[in-house]
Design a protein around this nucleic acid. Structure first.
Lengths: 114, 114
DNA sequence: TAGAACTCGCAACCAACGGTTGCGCATGCC
DNA sequence: GGCATGCGCAACCGTTGGTTGCGAGTTCTA
């Protein structure tokens, strides 16, 4: 049921470092590869690569400012990703609930027979 | 804010193939590496490795049955993972909402000045 | 205005991981 | 006993997250 369409956006958000980057960018209202790397346990280059990935899927946008390259979160796109995320969660939740109901029904049936 | 504690469970569920495996296991009420690999675009060995990962984080449990090795989903653990998932989603959602409010406030302030 | 300081991008390299193929071993069925 | 089936182990490959090293462009300042 869980389609494969999600996978590009999902996998972009799937990386822990990228999640923390998005978190920092949201908290500070933007940032550069260098500024982010100072608050993360990875080097600037690693951050830069991640920013490239996030840029490709449209979760962030770059704005050259002098010698800096300032990144900001595309909130609309992130909202879309979050929606997909919670929809997957909801699907599993529903399935788990259904399984539980069936299990309980079987239990009741057995109890009736005994 | 999003802690690093989630990362083990989260990354286990992060892989698309593992998500589809969990989905299949839930739908069929269990399965073996071979049975799963027949319904997935990967080999039995790849599936076996993934089952090992899922087993290590407690999302599935193995029950040797004759020459088979039958796996079942630990629904409680999966429910916990789903909860973490949606909590992360909720956190981002809240932050996005807050950002939006601030932005609107700034807009209004500017309008008043003009 | 020349040079120091800072930020960035590119390239080479490494480790981990998802995936495959090829084997050998155990279990079950005829 | 013999054949088929299911599993585990090992070697190997491509991708990806991460690092170091370096050269080039921009800003600040002496």
């Amino acid at each position: 049921m869980t389609a494969a369409v999600d996978d590009d956006l999902w996998s972009a958000v799937g990386d822990p470092t990228r999640r923390r980057m998005l978190d920092l960018l949201l908290a500070d209202g933007g940032g550069t590869a260098t500024s982010l790397s100072e608050r993360l346990p990875v080097t600037r280059q690693a951050v830069a690569k991640h920013l490239g990935v996030l840029d490709r899927v449209g979760l962030v946008h770059a704005a050259p400012a002098g010698r800096e390259r300032r990144y900001r979160v595309d909130e609309e796109q992130l909202a879309r990703a979050v929606a997909q995320l919670s929809s997957v969660g909801a699907a599993w939740d529903a399935r788990l609930r259904r399984i539980k109901l069936i299990a309980e029904a079987v239990q009741r049936e057995r109890a009736d027979q005994a």
